[in-house]
């Protein structure tokens, strides 16, 4: 599989380029913009001397390209930061230090990843289950009442913003009926049961919307596959409808759906911010909102790169999944 190795290498090179471009964009946005970063970091009541100190410490006096160069150097070779008393080494890959807390950005992000990860993984499993199941069902029972009903439900589902459905679910299930506890995040390692119950509602809110999209996707993919020539071949060779749908149509129809879902799962690391805000889950998205408010540039860049990394990774995974599922696709 020489072509496959080449394909992977090209993918990785492309991904690195995209991430570098991302970091440039974020740096540019923050530096071109007006406003005294040192003043904001230091706070309203800082004296000019204190602000100057912060300014020096953060290296804000350096030209933009030098600051960016340090940042890139940190990622590949690590770098040193002067703290009040001595030198702190930040080993590669180093995304820098928070302006506010001097905490290393990588530590900060690694602390938040399990939170957002928990949210994404649970929602992902649920939406695939509900979405693909519904899609297959409505393709199979096409033309019937079931299909019409499912069509309407999925249409409504795709039309609902997550914060609307989330709010309604909280009101109905937690507040009025009191069937579920109010959402909260408890680390899995602390208490798996509380982790599960605390995240159930956020999972559902995310999954309901995504699964509506996936139901539609699966359905049209199924219908398309069922109209393909090879399905006709197996029909002409005496296979039962069950075997045709189960073995031949399902595989061809679901493979692209799974691949696309990998893509969406990656994107969700960035877009989970809404859900996190709504349910008060201290994930990576909330961290970003907080850091943007305080102009904590290293953290912002770090988070953007991390979420960007997941998008790029998911893109590659989707391509590979799709290509392995369907060998007709030329990897290029």
């Amino acid at each position: 599989m020489n072509g496959f190795t080449g394909f992977l290498l090209r993918r990785i090179a492309g991904a690195v380029l995209v991430l570098l471009a991302l970091s440039v964009v974020v740096y540019a946005v923050f530096y071109v913009a007006p406003g005294n970063v040192a003043q904001i970091v230091c706070g309203e009541r800082c004296s000019p001397q204190q602000v100057a100190l912060v300014h020096d410490k953060l290296g804000l006096g350096d030209p933009l390209y030098l600051q960016y160069g340090h940042f890139i150097q940190g990622i590949f070779a690590g770098r040193d930061f002067s703290s009040g008393t001595g030198v702190v080494h930040c080993s590669a890959p180093c995304l820098g230090q928070s302006y506010r807390t001097d905490e290393q950005v990588t530590d900060l992000i690694f602390g938040k990843l399990p939170v957002t990860g928990s949210l994404v993984i649970g929602a992902f499993a649920l939406w695939l289950l509900i979405g693909v199941g519904t899609g297959v069902l409505s393709a199979w029972k096409r033309g019937g009442v079931v299909e019409r009903l499912l069509t309407w439900l999925t249409l409504a589902g795709t039309s609902t913003p997550v914060f609307v459905i989330g709010l309604l679910l909280i009101i109905v299930l937690c507040s009025t009926l009191q069937w579920l506890p109010f959402p909260q995040y408890v680390p899995f390692t602390d208490n798996p049961e509380q982790w599960f119950w605390g995240l159930l509602l956020p999972w559902f809110s995310l999954a309901l919307i995504e699964s509506a999209k996936y139901a539609r996707l699966t359905r049209s993919s199924m219908l398309e596959t069922l109209a393909e020539d090879h399905v006709r071949t197996f029909r002409a060779y005496g296979l039962t409808e069950r075997a045709i749908v189960g073995r031949h149509a399902l595989r061809g129809a679901v493979a692209p759906v799974i691949a696309l879902s990998a893509l969406d799962a990656g994107t969700m690391f960035g877009s989970a911010v809404l859900t996190e805000t709504l349910f008060g889950i201290p994930g990576i998205g909330r961290q970003l909102v907080e850091s943007v408010r305080t102009v904590d540039l290293p953290v912002v860049v770090g988070v953007v790169l991390t979420t960007g990394f997941f998008v790029v990774l998911a893109n590659a995974v989707a391509d590979v999944l799709y290509a392995t599922a369907d060998r007709r696709v030329v990897l290029s």
């Binding site: 995209v18 991430l19 991302l22 964009v25 974020v26 946005v29 923050f30 994107t267 690391f269 960035g270 877009s271 911010v273 809404l274 998205g285 970003l288 909102v289 943007v292 912002v300 988070v303 953007v304 979420t307 960007g308 998008v311 790029v312 893109n315």
Partner: peptide
């Protein structure tokens, strides 16, 4: 496409 829309908007 790799820029999460909300992320960049916030920034």
């Amino acid at each position: 496409a790799a820029l999460p829309m909300l992320v960049i908007t916030l920034g």
